[in-house]
Amino acid sequence: MTGYTDTEMMALAAGRLIKDGDIVFAGTGVSMLAATTAKRIYAPGAVFFFETGGIDPDLRELPMTVGDPRVMSGTSINTGLIDALSLLGHRKLRTIALLGTAQIDRYGNLNTTSLGDYHRPATRFPGSGGACDAASCASGVISFVKHEKRRFVEKLDYLTSVGWYRGGDSRRRLGLPRGGPIAVVTNLGVMKFDDATKEMYLACRYPGVPVEAILENTGFPVDVSRTVETEPPSAEELRILREEVDPQHLILQ
């Protein structure tokens, strides 16, 4: 079996969740890698769009961010933020958003704003961008985060993007009738959410990753009874990712 890195496995694991016909909103970073990978390998019939307004670009070169001119190239239509963000919640569309995050809680709420006190933070991150909008309006969210205790926390320092909020039907009661997190893709496995409680559980772990490693790196209790081991990346998947999707290693590590 070929060796592979955490970022490669994350991009492939997320790409495998995308299906032909999906309408996918991708953010900056690993999200962009997963989107471009899905387009090349798993779902050439999926449509990718970006909050900046690029709808269905050809993605011949990997965009580095959603503001990259590569999201405007070979598109169906070039628009702006309001047009693109209004598609997220469009009642006719089933939209899936790919979002990176710095912190996540058991209900899939995300923090990309800051650590510590909001007004005088210990660490400031870039902020919501379109993440809060995607979390509010899209039909579903797949998020990316490194599996560490300081990132999988009981309580977020700042709630930038709403997931299942406080579990159960609390998201709907906020006034958000659709959407919610589908999956969390980490460097150790993929977490999903219980249909009733909306709590995170371990859906799959990557080849050779023991369940204990996931428990040790999660800052809250997690149900592991439904866990399966995922398929390792094939040589062909890795070749496309390394040679075609990100040959310059802009995002791959």
Binding site: E51, G80, L81, I82, L85, G89, S128, G129, G130, A131, C132, D133, S136, C137, L159, V162, Y165, R171, L174, G175, L176
Partner: peptide, 26 residues
């Protein structure tokens, strides 16, 4: 958020004092 800021500019352009959105609840 991006949608919120863009809508705030749109409200200014339209000459209305505020604009509603679903984004950000909670």
């Amino acid at each position: 958020s991006n949608y919120q800021m863009s809508l705030r500019f749109l409200a200014g352009a339209l000459g209305v004092p505020y604009i509603p959105s679903k984004s950000g609840l909670g």
